[in-house]
Computed example of a mutant assay.
Amino acid sequence: MPLINPVELRRLVTELDALEAAPEGPGTERRRADLHYTLCVSTGIRDAARAVEQARRLLTPQLEGLAPAAA
Rank of each mutant, 00 (worst) to 15 (best):
D34K: 02
G25A: 06
L35I: 11
L9S: 08
G25M: 05
M1T: 01
P68K: 10
T60I: 06
L66D: 05
H36Q: 15
A67G: 07
E64H: 09
D47C: 03
P23K: 08
R56N: 08
V7N: 08
A18P: 00
D34T: 07
V13A: 05
G44K: 04
T28Q: 13
L9H: 08
T43G: 02
A48N: 02
Y37R: 15
A48I: 00
E15L: 10
L12A: 04
A69G: 12
A67L: 15
T14I: 07
E8C: 03
T60K: 14
A21I: 07
G27Q: 11
L39A: 00
A51G: 02
L12C: 00
R57N: 08
R30Y: 04
E64C: 05
E53N: 12
S42F: 04
L19R: 08
P2T: 14
H36M: 11
A22S: 12
P23Y: 03
L9G: 06
L58I: 07
S42R: 10
L63W: 13
L58D: 02
T60V: 08
E53W: 03
R56C: 04
R56M: 03
D17S: 14
T14A: 12
R46H: 06
A49S: 15
R30V: 10
Y37C: 03
P6C: 08
N5G: 07
L12Y: 00
I4Q: 09
G44D: 06
A21W: 09
A49G: 09
Y37I: 00
N5R: 10
L35Y: 00
Y37M: 10
D47V: 05
E24F: 04
P26W: 04
L12V: 00
T38I: 10
E8F: 05
A55S: 15
E8T: 11
Q54A: 14
H36S: 11
G65L: 09
G65F: 13
R46N: 11
V52F: 05
T60E: 14
A21K: 13
L39G: 01
A48H: 07
A55C: 08
A22V: 03
A22T: 07
R30H: 09
T38H: 04
A33Q: 13
R10M: 03
R10H: 07
E8V: 09
T38C: 03
A18N: 10
E53Y: 07
E24S: 11
C40S: 15
G44Q: 06
V41I: 15
A67Q: 14
S42Y: 04
R30I: 09
Q62M: 09
P23W: 03
R11D: 13
R32Y: 02
A71M: 12
I4G: 00
R30N: 10
T60P: 01
L35M: 05
D47I: 02
V13N: 02
L66E: 11
A22E: 09
L58N: 02
M1C: 02
T43Y: 02
E29A: 13
A22G: 04
A69R: 11
V13R: 02
Y37H: 15
R57C: 03
N5Q: 10
R30L: 14
E53F: 09
L58M: 14
A69C: 11
A69P: 07
H36V: 01
L39W: 00
E8I: 06
A51S: 13
A67H: 10
I45N: 01
H36I: 01
R10C: 02
H36P: 00
L19E: 07
R32G: 01
R50K: 14
V13P: 00
V41E: 15
G65R: 13
P6S: 08
S42H: 04
E24A: 13
